[in-house]
Amino acid sequence: MYTKKEKPSRRIFQIFNYILLIGFTLICVYPFWTMIIYTVSDPSVADIKAPILFPKGFTLNNYKEILVLNGFFHSLLISILRTVLGTFVTVFASAIMGYLFTKEEMPCRKVLYRAVVLTMYINGGLIPTFILIRSYGLLNNFWVYILPMTVSGYYIILIKTFVEQLPKELEEAAVIDGAGYFKVFTSVIIPLSKPIIATIAVFAAVSHWNSWFDNYIYTSKNEGIQTLQYLLYQYLNQAQQMADQVKNSHGTISSAAASISTKGVRMTITVLAFLPIFIVYPFMQRFFTKGIMLGAVKC
């Protein structure tokens, strides 16, 4: 594709383009990097002057302290449990619904499918949902993380579109062998739909891992089911209030010192909350990309 002799204007454009895009990428990554280097730096040095490019000294003390921090380990477990269970339930629900909607003999298929698609546009709003969740007895209940997020119109559309283009012969062969709908689903449809299922799984996992607002409005009184993101929110809130206090009182020593001691905790939780995504994302990127492509085809 390269022409032997490039025009100078083209060369200048290329150089400018590389600088621009690499610059933007650095802006995307740098904030995360500053967090990481702060948490592994020697606190006595880092608190006076935050490291800018590389860690100052090296210690894992912040991480050791976090592990014994009251409530940290428990919230981590809750977040993992929520992500694993929530992803499983969402993937199962989307897969089976997507499959069922491809069956033309299904009674009321069109009406039910429309009802599912319409959920993407209709939303009762914050207050009615809150009142309902309360009347269902789901306040301060772990299942409020899972149930409302189980059925997603978007994922169901993705699965349905995918299953529709699978060859019918395999399914028919299984039916002749005497398989019922559920058997066909588990032994034919699921294995064939692995790519789209993987895509939905990564999206569902990320949105479960990142959720915190449901924890904030529905389950804030139950510390036993506090998620990692919400724990971080509380530390940030505290830090914000302290910063306001320090500002208003023109920096009394005690509150300033307090804000520094929680800073390490805050930053370390932040790192631990984004690290899983950073580790997994580069390997899973193609699944994420596939998700947006399929969505675009649907449009």
Partner: peptide, 25 residues
Amino acid sequence: RYRLLLMALPFMVLILLFNYMPVFG
């Protein structure tokens, strides 16, 4: 074929409870 409906039922109930009921609110 009504089994298909039966399999969809639990999830349709969830949609009703969490997506449509709030509108009545």
